[in-house]
């Protein structure tokens, strides 16, 4: 670096260095006196300094989260969050309790095995294959089944029991009924509720429960002191092998992207964004560059990897190279 050298000409780079504070006192003095002699340079300098100063300030625009702040203001104005729920029902939902009782379902699974679910007419099995499927159960509870998921219930559902066996992932909006608790059996665990809405995702090692409305108590049936108390907008992860719950976490909106059809980001690093997208569509991510830059608020359709990436590319004017090879998403410069 030749910082202390006498400056021969005032070119663009010199001006940039001047603004960046890269010059020493003598050089600054020299530049300023030369600029004074040249009206055109003086004008250029004035414009550049304005841009330079303003650029530092417009960074604030990026800190403003209009949607989040609108939600806060809307609440203060007294507008309901989304659909209007009569007060009594709203209150009732808050009081709903969800119990994740590990171990109980084992018994039920045993029973189910014996009666052979598929062949018994007293059991109803609903499955979703390539598309989402919305089901309204006899008690008006609404279940949205994710792809490759299924649920099973028997013909006493809504009369004597509200038991469901879930394989895969589903979103539940449970009709409140204090007399018959709503129970979902997943692997060797049970989710029991009165009325609330939540998402259950079953994977090889974990069961994830995310609560959209209601108050939820999650615990192991054998060890009730091992519990997590969840409210609206919280989630927890149950590890099937260690039998432990993760600390509760803010509900990840993208965890129900399969239902809402929208993946949304706001201020996360691009690395995180690509990881989330790849994971959502079941791809592995290979990053050939570091992506520390933060994304601004964006909603992407979660229909297919291709479409999501195309939308990402057009909304934020990305210039990375994105390549899909088999089950791998590769990002490079």
């Amino acid at each position: 670096m030749k910082e202390d050298k006498y400056i021969n000409s005032i070119n663009d780079e010199t001006l940039a260095k001047y603004l960046s504070g890269e010059l020493d006192e003598k050089q600054i003095e020299q530049i300023e006196s030369e600029i004074m002699k040249n009206a055109e340079k003086e004008q250029e300098m004035r414009e550049l300094s304005q841009l330079w100063e303003k650029a530092a300030r417009v960074g604030d625009y990026e800190k403003i989260n209009v949607d989040a702040d609108w939600t806060a203001v809307k609440t203060r104005m007294g507008f309901r969050k989304s659909k209007k729920i009569p007060f009594v029902k709203y209150f009732a939902r808050i009081a709903a309790i969800l119990v994740l009782a590990i171990g109980l379902a084992y018994l039920l699974n045993q029973v189910m095995d014996k009666v052979n679910v598929a062949e018994q007419s007293s059991f109803i099995k609903l499955a979703a294959k390539d598309e989402l499927r919305e089901v309204v159960l006899p008690d008006k509870t609404i279940v949205t089944l994710n792809r490759n998921s299924s649920l099973t219930y028997n013909d006493n559902y809504g009369l004597e029991n509200r038991d469901i066996i879930l394989a895969g992932e589903a979103f539940f909006d449970v009709e409140r009924n204090e007399d018959i608790p709503f129970k979902v059996f997943v692997d060797n665990s049970v989710v029991e509720v009165l009325g609330t809405s939540f998402n259950i995702h079953q994977s090889k090692n974990n069961i994830k429960v995310g609560v959209v409305s209601g108050h939820v108590l999650v615990y192991e049936s054998d060890k009730k002191d091992n519990h997590v108390d969840l409210v609206k907008d919280e989630q927890t992860l149950y590890n099937k092998s260690t039998h432990e719950f993760s600390a509760k976490d803010a509900l990840d909106e993208n965890s129900i992207a399969w239902k809402t059809g929208i993946l949304s980001f706001d201020g996360e690093s691009f690395e995180f964004v690509f990881e989330t997208i790849a994971e959502f569509f079941g791809y592995d991510l290979q990053l050939n560059i570091s992506l520390n830059e933060k994304i601004s608020q964006v909603n992407l359709p979660a229909s297919s990897l291709n479409e999501t990436l195309e939308n990402l590319e057009s909304t934020i004017k990305l210039e990375y190279n994105m390549e899909i090879k088999g089950k791998k998403l590769i990002i490079s410069d």
Binding site: D12, E13, L15, A16, K17, L19, S20, E22, E44, E47, L48, L51, W52, A55
Partner: peptide, 13 residues
């Protein structure tokens, strides 16, 4: 870095 800053200023102006 300096070259990129110069470039940015030029484009913006």
């Amino acid at each position: 870095v300096e070259t990129q800053i110069t470039k940015a200023l030029k484009i913006l102006r």
